[in-house]
Computed example of a mutant assay.
Amino acid sequence: MSASEPQADRGRPAQRQAEIAEHVLQHGSVSATELAEMFHVSLMTIHRDLDELERQGVVRKFRGGVSAQPSSVFESNVSYRLRASRQEKLALARRARELIEPGMAVMLDDSTSTLELARLLHDAAPLTVITNFLETIKLLSGVRGIRLLSLGGEYFATHDSFLGVPCIEAIEALRVDLLFASTSAVSGSYAYHQEQEIVLVKRAMIRAAQRAVLMVDHTKLGRVALHRVAPLRDFDLVLTDASAPENSLREMRENGVSYEVA
């Protein structure tokens, strides 16, 4: 660490890293130089901080800066996804809520889109909800009339959810009326995701559902990620929002995909 850096900064790297993470999550991406000036530390110190945040899965580094936004191989941390496209996700959730009837068994994946739907289920009882998303589990655990089944497995802090073989085996033992899921990228006639652990769980969820609904806001359309999740036609309905580009909607029509614009 540079001898010219304020002594106070030397003793609080964790606090500084938390503030850096908050700034990057708010702005999406930022340069290392800007962060060094903002926190009055050297570039070397900032890069050490960013290395630690990248190790935690909060951000990803690129030449000259850092980003919380997704790439074809990097899924955004759940903290960033909770902030992104809130109004669009709410529109999708309201339409999805209309598909749910009392007495159903409904599965929700670990997406922030389905979390918005979970917020609307307070008056849906009696209802059985199955999920692997810790945020949804906490949200619905005290809701009267909702029978909550949590899917166990290995906990992944980046997604705030449970994944892996135990999760998949738990899903395979169930059969639900409706699945609501999302994914990080949709292109052509396929849904994509960056991480194979997520892909395997989503595929198991699709197999476990009598009907499956994919909730994807317009920011996810026309993008690809490393792994194919499933053909869009594996979903009974694709929900997107009013800002969806016409070329993406045309591709879905041409490929025989059933979709609605919320």
Rank of each mutant, 00 (worst) to 15 (best):
A8Y: 12
S189T: 10
P231E: 14
Q210G: 14
R207E: 10
R147E: 15
R207L: 07
T112N: 12
Q7E: 13
R86N: 14
V261L: 06
S189M: 08
G188Y: 01
P102W: 01
S248E: 15
R81N: 15
S111A: 10
L200H: 09
V78M: 13
M38C: 13
V129N: 11
Q7W: 11
G103Y: 01
E154G: 08
N132M: 10
T45V: 00
A3L: 13
Y192M: 05
Q210Y: 07
E251M: 04
A21C: 12
Q26E: 12
T114Q: 07
T183M: 04
R16K: 03
D49V: 00
E169M: 05
N132E: 09
T128A: 09
L221A: 11
A32T: 11
A185E: 04
L232A: 11
R48L: 03
A8W: 11
D49F: 01
R83D: 15
H47G: 00
S113Q: 06
V143I: 09
Q194V: 03
S2T: 12
E172S: 12
R175Y: 02
G142S: 12
R228K: 07
I206D: 01
D123S: 13
P102L: 06
L134M: 13
A14W: 01
F162W: 13
L134A: 15
I146T: 03
L120V: 11
S67Q: 03
V257R: 09
M215R: 00
Q15I: 04
H159P: 04
S76T: 08
A212M: 14
V229K: 07
F162Q: 10
S184D: 10
Q87R: 15
R228L: 02
Q194A: 15
P102Q: 09
D49G: 00
A32Y: 01
R12I: 15
R175T: 07
H227Y: 07
L43D: 07
G153I: 08
R228A: 02
H27D: 00
Q26R: 13
G28P: 11
S184V: 06
D109E: 05
G103C: 03
E88L: 12
V129Y: 03
Q196L: 06
M252N: 12
A21F: 02
A204C: 04
A181W: 01
V229C: 09
L43W: 00
A3V: 09
D234H: 07
H122M: 03
Q26A: 14
K61W: 00
R211Y: 03
P231N: 09
V216P: 02
G153M: 10
E5N: 06
L53N: 02
Q26M: 08
S71R: 09
